[in-house]
Nucleic acid binder design. Sequence first.
DNA 1: ATGGAATTCAAACGAGCGTTTGAATCGGAC
DNA 2: GTCCGATTCAAACGCTCGTTTGAATTCCAT
Lengths: 239, 239
Amino acid sequence: MAASRPARKGIADPTSADTKTRILDAAELLFMEHGFEATSLRSLTSAASVNLAAVNYHFGSKEELFQTVLTRRLDPMNQERIDLLERVERESAGKPVTCERILSAMLIPALRLARDEERGGKNFLRLVGRAYADPAPFIRHFLSAQYTEMIGRYKEAFGRALPHLPKQELTWRLHFVMGALSYTLAGTDALKLFSQMTGTDKERDNDELLIQRLAPFLVAGLKAPALGDTRKLELVSGY
Amino acid sequence: MAASRPARKGIADPTSADTKTRILDAAELLFMEHGFEATSLRSLTSAASVNLAAVNYHFGSKEELFQTVLTRRLDPMNQERIDLLERVERESAGKPVTCERILSAMLIPALRLARDEERGGKNFLRLVGRAYADPAPFIRHFLSAQYTEMIGRYKEAFGRALPHLPKQELTWRLHFVMGALSYTLAGTDALKLFSQMTGTDKERDNDELLIQRLAPFLVAGLKAPALGDTRKLELVSGY
DNA sequence: ATGGAATTCAAACGAGCGTTTGAATCGGAC
DNA sequence: GTCCGATTCAAACGCTCGTTTGAATTCCAT
């Protein structure tokens, strides 16, 4: 009986907000470190210094908590992406917007979020990157819903910037872009695969530098000749 | 006492091989569908029509089973990648090998595996793609070890094909390549984000076509001018 | 000060988990 | 046919999980 919607809609309620925020912050960190399944509500509430029942009281369930964790950051970020794209298009005054600018509008809000340590920062982006690959259906469906509008807008914008590219080809390429992006954001240990970075390199390679490296790679890929415009993939002889 | 290594090294032992194989096949499918944590040994052994204790008897633990599932397919595939690269380099007789050929040597064994439905096919590649993003340390460390040699060889080959590219830039770009690749292999529902494919398109877009689309994108990204060779990312004004 | 809702708390619930055990069964060598 | 190690099996162990409960407490408008 106590589970429905106890939160008042009035002015700010600092007491409950404190508990809810402590839970959200701890959840963000732990979900990032261990994933959704492997994070127990007991370790989570213990880390947040709240009672075990607080999660179900304030959020209803573990799944709803997870969705709230994602929404809290993703909603503003994706809105920022949409706003930035619209601003860029407005300022271009009818002229076609370049790929570089469109991609920048997409990456910059992510970069801004990554830098804002008070709002989760890199931890959160890693969480999103991993959530993308999570097999749980409710996570995939939720993320899909969160991103649909933003992706649609950018697809249209890129379509205008790359008019020669067939729509279906563009769909695939945006998929590849999101792949490289999520993987990069999610990765930490993954970089150790290539394990040739020195300690100082690791520290200096902050997120801005990362995006400065990622953007040229992605722009070049987006601008590549479409399949069919060039000869087929050069296959190794004998395959 | 019964857990150490009961498997005989003699000729094939069809009885135990049958049980082990049934477990491995069911595990491959279920780990792919639900992930490592969310797959219980009870549902797994039930799907394989073997006794619950069989997993611990034959593999020692759930973790060791998971590693065996990955090794069974990854070991030969990565070896094939290395062999193919060596063959391409041998046949070029000293001339520099092109990016396209190197990338092909990397993608073709994956494509070959994806087609071999009797050996797991697409299911398995999706499993690998997801395992890459799994937070469990033992999975990350295991995958890292599995890939280190193969990645190292390809990094050297790409370094020769792209001599102008600084080593560190190449490291990042290979990271992006692996990202787009894993994400693409892992994705299924992810494609629905862009949800503009018709049903017939979905069926016709088989894995070969997918790689034919992915390769030009990746080659163009790899060949892009290095950071510093060109002006910085065009930032949206006011950022 | 007091009443009533919002929140916190300790405790327990039932279920499912990976793993272990020891007996039953199997299968080929002698 | 007998024996012995390899395998299968049903059952249980100990533990952790997400969730629920009902009483205790806090908070604030009256």
